[in-house]
Nucleic acid binder design. Structure first.
Lengths: 246, 246
DNA sequence: CGGTCGGTTGATAATAGTCAACCTCTGTGG
DNA sequence: CCACAGAGGTTGACTATTATCAACCGACCG
């Protein structure tokens, strides 16, 4: 089961592979494994050993954590064209730190961690790219941590809505929620009920207008200003790493 | 102002430098910059441009974020022998994502990002080490995210106490808090008052015994079991990376 | 001796979670 | 064509958790 031309394109263009030499690319492609999952299928369980990382060819994948008492925290939603579980290969103990579930019919392309590591050893360029990637990721987690601790449910929702705006040309915008509201709520670490109330709250105050999954924002500026400047107007991007936990 | 022998030792033994060739090490050492800060001194402001990363020679450094409305979130406490801000050098826009403040008199050794990057380009070994480092860090943030959303203040405190146990030989332990309680509280994202009540709570239930900063845990197992197994007994270590935010 | 810092304790308020009812689509089968 | 079931979403009443404000305690310092 060789890869289609379309698949090869997608892979080779991905920053994780684009800097490799043709030969290295070929080896990785030869080793790639395509897998399909139905909606709701469990792709990988938390604490399973991880030998591969994945590129999502189509569909959406939900990454979440299950705590000892069964509660679930959605960590991320991975959409087509993006990879997940790349960072695990650099750790000694290679187990999946999260569960992965298909939100819709999903096609994944899996790559061997071992093989990838071998090629990385000879390709500092891609290593640096990966480091860049991970820095961004780390920074995003830092943002999320801040949002969780320093902002309330409504503020987080507002920030999420703004982040969903595609065209930042004007001060007003129309957006369509790409996921069921209950999932967005989970991603923001709030209950669907609270999510619903937060939407209602913003609507009552005239900051947004919503019909089902269509939401219009008359003024992005107003929406952000409402919350003490909500990150001084979408500025600040960077990340930090530090070698010691308290 | 050349480095002392002691400083050179500390640097060269650090995993970030230990894999470089002698010559590369020398170049980095030659470029290193030593700086002193008094207690409470502001080392770096959030959003300042960052040209260097730092190794803490002595003292403790508090990394924290300030949100637009002035609230502070303590991200990490860096102790002697550890580095911070290494991840920033991999990002295009190099600004500090957090503030850094000296908790006590601090000696820092700063290294040029540019120079370090140049050497990394020729040393995939260290790149991979760095990637490992960052994976661990990413995973820790994931843990923290889980703890913040899925556990309450008392559970987080219990987990913190257990994490502070040095000698895991027996089931009981004695620990000494290395930081003022109010700072630990900040790190756990709770108010000092709540922290105090949580301690009282655990004490009332006989799960810990505390006199000032000396805390004894009769049974670590009991303490953890109290909270639905609190991460199935200190297991699970790994991290994930994913290339798309919701 | 007074002051201040770190910490504790109490009363109260804000925020979000829980539980339950209900609503509104949408697709299915009678 | 209509009833009905079920999923996703909304709303209301109530509860739990944590923050806030304020008083207070004890230790250490000048």
């Amino acid at each position: 089961m060789a890869l289609t031309q379309e698949q090869r394109q997608m892979i080779v263009r991905h920053p994780l592979f684009s800097h490799f030499k043709a030969q290295a690319q070929e080896e990785l492609l030869a080793d790639a494994l395509v897998r399909d999952y139905d909606t709701q299928a469990l792709i990988q369980r938390q604490d399973d050993p991880a030998e591969r990382f994945y590129l999502v060819q189509s569909g959406k994948v939900k990454l979440y954590r299950i705590s000892a008492d069964g509660k679930e925290k959605v960590v991320e939603i991975i959409t087509a064209g993006n990879t997940f579980a790349e960072a695990i290969m650099f750790m000694q103990k290679s187990v999946f730190p999260v569960c992965a579930e298909a939100l819709e019919p999903v096609k994944l392309i899996g790559f061997s961690n071992r093989l990838m590591l071998r090629h990385l050893e000879q390709n500092p360029q891609t290593c640096l790219h990966l480091l860049g990637h991970m820095s961004v990721r780390l920074h995003q987690r830092l943002d999320e941590l801040e949002h969780l601790t320093l902002q309330n449910a409504t503020q987080r929702l507002a920030l999420y809505l703004v982040s969903q705006v595609r065209d930042r040309a004007g001060d007003s915008a129309e957006i369509e929620l790409i996921l069921p509201k209950s999932l967005i709520a989970a991603r923001l670490s709030i209950k669907p009920e609270t999510f619903s109330r937060a939407i209602a709250n913003l609507r009552e105050r005239g900051l947004i207008d919503s019909r089902a999954r269509q939401i219009s924002i008359p003024s992005i500026r107003n929406l952000l200003d409402e919350f003490a400047g909500g990150q001084q107007h979408t500025e600040h991007k960077a990340s930090i790493i530090a070698s010691d936990s308290l």
